[in-house]
Design a protein around this nucleic acid. Structure first.
Lengths: 120, 120
DNA sequence: CAGCTTCTCAACCACTCGGTTGACGAATGC
DNA sequence: GCATTCGTCAACCGAGTGGTTGAGAAGCTG
């Protein structure tokens, strides 16, 4: 469970960068080489290579064999982990809202509609 | 759409830190003050205050009025944004897997079961 | 008012990050 | 073998981050 924390550290950090999110978006359509990925950006090839490395270390992406051409391939597993983490707390918060709404409804019922003045 | 990118930048960056994810997890259960939040950590109050500030600037959390006691409250909206982003690409990747599987199935059918050697 | 509590701001430090440039490594084509 | 192409590694730089300490602001309470 603690290694999940490390994976989440790396995954969230990896996606905190716009260029890397864009790489992910493009890789969702098709695998690509580093050179292909780098082409549209106003940035050195080395910089893109580093971004891909970050994505790979975060487990968001896998690469083919050590070779000249090594296409980058998107991997869904860590996305699952992140999605579950987010969904969990999103769900809890929404539950709390609903409980709060219910509570407020009950309060309004009890008070029968008085004190509608101090809502900021 | 571009400001969404900034919101995602901040939101993913905010959740890339374990302490802040823990704060979110605790706030999902109940609102709390900075002091309450800081108590379990081996860290100064100021450090926790900074973490809360990061969460607030990411829109993950809202705070009550400028005052002495200002409880911190989890906000679900940006979670939605992140969840949607992740789900989108996760979904595309899974689709591609399925298409790839289908393609491989067809190839196997065509070749009638030869060449099962070079799977790495 | 004084005093206490709660929290934030400011300055500082070590470290990380995103980018650069330059040099190198490994497969392909001749 | 040699040149070319694709990619990574290494060193560096400016900006940002996560932590610290010290001081101060804002609200309660006596």
């Amino acid at each position: 469970m603690d290694e999940d924390a490390e994976r989440l550290d790396r995954a969230f950090a990896a996606l905190a960068d716009r260029t890397r999110r864009d790489l992910v978006a493009r890789l969702a359509g098709a695998d690509a080489t580093v050179g292909e990925l780098a082409e549209p950006y106003d940035m050195s090839l080395q910089a893109v290579s580093k971004h891909v490395k970050v994505l790979a270390e975060a487990g968001l992406v896998t690469r083919s064999k050590d070779a000249q051409r090594r296409p980058v391939h998107l991997d869904a597993e860590v996305f699952d982990l992140m999605a579950k983490w987010i969904e969990r707390y999103r769900g809890e918060v929404e539950e709390r809202y609903q409980r709060l709404d219910a509570l407020l409804d009950r309060m309004v019922d009890d008070e029968d509609g008085t004190r509608a003045e101090d809502a900021s």
